[in-house]
Amino acid sequence: MDEKILEIKDLTVSFGENRVIEDVSFSIKRGEVTALVGESGSGKTMTALSILDLLPDTACRRKGEILFDGKNIFDLGPEELRDMRGNAIAMVFQEPFTALNPVIRIGRQIAEAVSAHGICPRSEVRERIKESLSTVRLPEETVYQYPHELSGGMRQRVMLSMALSCDPAILILDEPTTALDVSIQKHILDLIRHIQKDRQLTVLFITHDFSVVRTIADKVCVMRRGRVVEQGAKEDVLGEPACEYTRQLIACIPVLGDKRERLPVVDG
């Protein structure tokens, strides 16, 4: 199980004169959790959106390749792209409060993902939704509810179940816990870890928080100002960070019993 399922080569994305991503290269192996780490504005989310070819289209130019299963996704036609999204590569966004459509019931929002890809016969869609809700430990009745009736944590579970409903080959999680209360964060992280282990999921986990990286990642890729500054196995990067920036980020992890008054400031 050592094959590369996704490979990003020399990806550069620019809005006009402004380069938000520069020569980013890294790869994801099947069954592994790759953490993409960096501060806000470092280009993590843009990298993730590039993988789904969902960059905001205003004056945006991109170079390089993103190979999924050996095929460059920039060469795919609109219909192939559509079928790839959600089905082969699914994504969970940072903001559970705005990521769900407020006027459509949860059940339908999940059903759409399933039926858009013809995953299963129409008659089994219902069953499949129930199943995916139970995977994220939500009650069956959730299908009849609207997003505003759910808490932030529950909404993020819904997003997760939606992403999982098509059994994607890769799951992209874009800061899935950042917008949540600290107590809820742990529940969601545990859930993600559990599901990942259970299904041997391939995950690209975007975060700014090295304490999360420590618990969940196999591989780490650190980004700063649109560039990858360091990557490698978790143990190597956390144990002996080669780059000063990474060292500063790691130093920000609060350690239980730490006596320091203030957290160090990172020079972004």
């Binding site: 999204r85 699914a90 939606m162």
Partner: peptide, 10 residues
């Protein structure tokens, strides 16, 4: 949510 809908492959 429109981004979500696109990411779902609709």
């Amino acid at each position: 949510y429109v981004l979500t809908a696109r990411a779902k492959g609709l």
